[in-house]
Amino acid sequence: MPRRLTRLLRRRRRLVVTLLLSAAAGVLVDGLTPASALTVPVIVVTRDLPAGAVLTSGDLTRADWPPGTVPDGTVTADVATGGRLGAPLRRGSPVTDAALLGPGLLTGAPAGRSAVPLRVADPAVLRVVRSGDFVDVIVPGSEDPAGTPGPARTVARSVTVLWTSTSRAGAAPGSGAWPTANDDAPLAVVAVPRTTAAELAGTTGGTGTVALVLVPPGP
């Protein structure tokens, strides 16, 4: 080693030692930092679940995700437990407010909307109507004393379908898929203005069912 370099190292020995100790301390601190400090806890499902399934504590577990990968609207285990899914979830998927039937199902919908379940007159319609479609909701007219039905009328135009009972394909009857009162009921949940929701509740005609007509998105 050249004498000049040797003399330089001797003069800077303290500085070199300090730098080496600082680097070693940094490596040690990084190694001792728990993984949880570098991740965010997220509640995810432990198995594939159909739309309408009621979440239990056994369906949920905690996973540690990098902060930049966590979606908006994730919920705690307390909120998720007992909630009903508005769409299927694959194992390992995070549970968000938008995935649960209820107010979260209306995430992104215009203000003043309600999620209304409707009994559909023709079950075959739900083979083509899917979540995200737009429909007109038509109620049958009431029968007169002679038993003649009155004219049908449209009570909601170009409303968004949030969920249909066909989303429950593959779920066994009584498995907790929503709704539980009648596993064969052809149902659809739509987002409608609150005033329309009240009207739908009282004007479904004598059959208690409605017709859905696929339409383009409204203005």
Rank of each mutant, 00 (worst) to 15 (best):
R3D: 15
T166A: 13
R47T: 07
A80M: 04
G150Q: 07
V95H: 06
A51C: 09
A201Y: 02
L100I: 08
P67L: 05
G202E: 11
A181N: 04
L118C: 09
L162Y: 01
R4V: 11
P67D: 04
G92C: 01
A98Q: 03
D72Q: 12
V213T: 14
S175V: 07
R3A: 11
P88G: 04
V27D: 14
S175A: 14
P219V: 10
A63Y: 07
P67W: 06
R153N: 04
R84F: 15
G112W: 14
P103S: 11
P179H: 11
G26M: 13
T166Y: 06
G147V: 08
G26H: 08
V116Q: 14
S57T: 11
R168G: 01
A169K: 03
L85R: 05
D122W: 07
G150R: 11
G112Y: 12
A35E: 11
L126D: 03
G86Q: 10
G208P: 01
L118F: 08
P145C: 13
G82T: 02
V75I: 12
V95M: 06
P66M: 09
V27K: 07
R14K: 10
A156T: 10
S57R: 10
L21Q: 15
T46M: 03
S93R: 01
A185C: 09
G141L: 12
R91M: 09
I138P: 10
W65G: 00
R11F: 02
G205L: 03
L200F: 13
L200N: 07
R84Y: 13
P151V: 04
A197T: 04
T46I: 05
V125W: 09
D136V: 02
S36P: 01
D72A: 15
D133H: 15
S36H: 05
P123R: 11
A25Q: 00
G108Q: 12
R13P: 03
S158L: 01
G108N: 12
S22Q: 15
F134I: 00
G202Q: 09
L101P: 00
P50A: 14
R4T: 13
S175P: 07
S36Q: 11
L32P: 04
L105F: 04
G68D: 14
L38Y: 02
D184L: 15
L214D: 04
G206M: 14
